[in-house]
Design a protein around this nucleic acid. Sequence first.
DNA 1: GCGACAG
DNA 2: ATCTTGTCGC
Length: 229
Amino acid sequence: MPPTTPVHPWDVTPEEAIAIQQQVRQQIRIEPMPHPAETIAGADISFNKFESTVYAGIVVLRLSDLAVIEEVGVVSETDFPYVPGLLSFREIPSLLKAWEKLTTIPDVVMFDGHGTAHPRRIGIASHAGLWLNRPTFGCGKSVLVGRYHDPAPERGDWSPMMHKGEVVGAALRTKNNVNPVYVSPGHLIDLETAIQLTLQCDGGYRIPEPTRRAHLLVNAIRRGEHPVS
DNA sequence: GCGACAG
DNA sequence: ATCTTGTCGC
């Protein structure tokens, strides 16, 4: 287990979760990636409303052509409810189980949610980055915190998301005349690189391929259309 | 006090 | 997040 791996329980109350976030947020490092990435993974979970069973999955893609290198999934249970700001406590435990099944370790991981664009600067992407001790960033479909001016309608344009005087992320246009996605660094990466990687994962859809593929995978697992070895 | 609020 | 068909617009 890497020395930077934060050891704390996941089976906690929302109040304790916030205290844990305050404690480990100091370990998050927003800085350029050590080496250019060749592979990227998308992570996501799915579930049936009102049920505690969650279907988690991770898809690893080769950045050069976005080909799928590997995909893993697990069926797990969660007690932690969805609480804005505490998403990591509901999703990370299951994602860590999926991560252990990977035989390929991706250079960077994209999460469906935020990194620093979080009230305490420790969204799911940042928190997971600490546990994985790997570059991570978030690419969400809506805003949790932060204000921004609409970026131009052309793919590639973006504008900074501001929160309490800080640039916490970017509203990025991944497709012409379509709502932007919200990118923010998680850990061991910077905003510029996260934006560049998101654009590099273009599959012609608003949602970048890693997250889109992970979403398709976990939904297939949930519907019993995909085996979970 | 009121409204906002990732997935 | 999930439940769901057609439909409006680029």
